[in-house]
């Protein structure tokens, strides 16, 4: 049995990815299972989904704590979520990332693979520019890197179960299959190691529970486009400040806007409401990590 855990953000299609993988495995004549972790379903929020593939009916119904394969649809999650928790030695970590595969932060004991699924999805017009839908591209890469399903079965699953743009999705899966880059276990990672402290047992205080201002949380990794202000043409009308739902625009002493880049989620409202149109939304070169 092969056990696969998907990590993504709401809106990227992690849950649908687990379903498509299971459907493709079924078309390959195998016995699949898939289900999402039940949690909040907001766009941008971390999402987990599971899939199992076996040659016999799968009896176990629990969530997957020791996966053979971990698939990460958003590279920003590497910095905020312990995605490699429980990943077996010799297992596979597949990340949607434009980075060199040697530089993915992961234990040396696992195989690593990377595919620039965001660029491929955008090239095929999947999702919006602010939120590309990368799941089918990543599944193509997964088919190659893990051998869990055949690309042919994946294509048939996409035709049957993807309601919009099945052709673009199939082409994206093929591109993902062709362009995935792998490195074997044992090759040391050149990324700095990330230390994960175990979660401490919860002790509720007598007073207020949540007292740390959320300003300490960085939400920059949600962003695919970054506002860029042409200050020479700025009229200091402060509309960008007034309409920001993330409190991510500050005004300096002279009234010019300053974007808090650690917090801006790249929604694009400031660019839209700016009367002289001095704000452009430009592609974020590379988000965290």
């Amino acid at each position: 049995m092969i056990e696969i855990r998907f990590h993504g953000r709401g809106g990227q299609g992690a849950v649908v990815a687990s379903e498509l993988l299971a459907q493709a495995a079924f078309l390959d004549g195998r016995e699949p299972q898939c289900f999402p972790f039940f949690g909040v379903e907001r766009r941008g929020a971390p999402v987990t989904a599971y899939a199992r593939i076996d040659d016999r009916p799968v009896g176990v119904r629990t969530s997957i704590v020791n996966p053979d394969v971990v698939v990460v649809l958003d590279p920003g999650l590497l910095a905020t979520t312990p995605v490699c928790d429980g990943l077996k030695d010799g297992g596979l970590l597949l990340v949607n990332s434009p980075r060199p595969v040697e530089r993915l932060a992961a234990p040396d004991s696992v195989r690593r693979a990377a595919v620039d699924a965001t660029a491929i999805a955008v090239a095929h017009g999947l999702g919006s520019r602010t939120m590309p839908i990368v799941n089918t591209t990543v599944l193509g890469a997964l088919a190659r890197a893990s051998g869990a399903v055949s690309l042919e079965a994946l294509g048939r699953a996409i035709d049957r179960f993807v309601p919009s743009h099945p052709e673009a999705n199939r082409a994206a899966a093929s591109d993902g299959f062709a362009s995935v880059r792998c490195v074997d276990a044992g090759v040391p990672s050149s990324a700095p190691p990330t230390a994960w402290a175990p979660t401490a047992p919860l002790v509720l205080p007598d007073g207020p529970i949540a007292t740390v201002p959320s300003r300490s949380i960085r939400t920059a990794a949600w962003r695919t486009l970054t506002p860029s202000i042409d200050l020479a043409r700025c009229t200091r009308c402060n509309f960008c400040w007034k309409y920001c739902p993330d409190d991510a625009v500050e005004l300096d002493a002279r009234g010019y806007p300053v974007i808090a880049l650690d917090s801006c989620k790249g929604c694009g409202i400031c660019a839209q409401v700016c009367p002289p149109k001095t704000i452009a939304m430009v592609a974020t070169e590379e988000t965290a990590p």
Partner: peptide, 10 residues
């Protein structure tokens, strides 16, 4: 405060 967990454009 910034840092909250709303969707972009909420």
């Amino acid at each position: 405060y910034r840092g909250h967990a709303a969707c972009p454009g909420c």
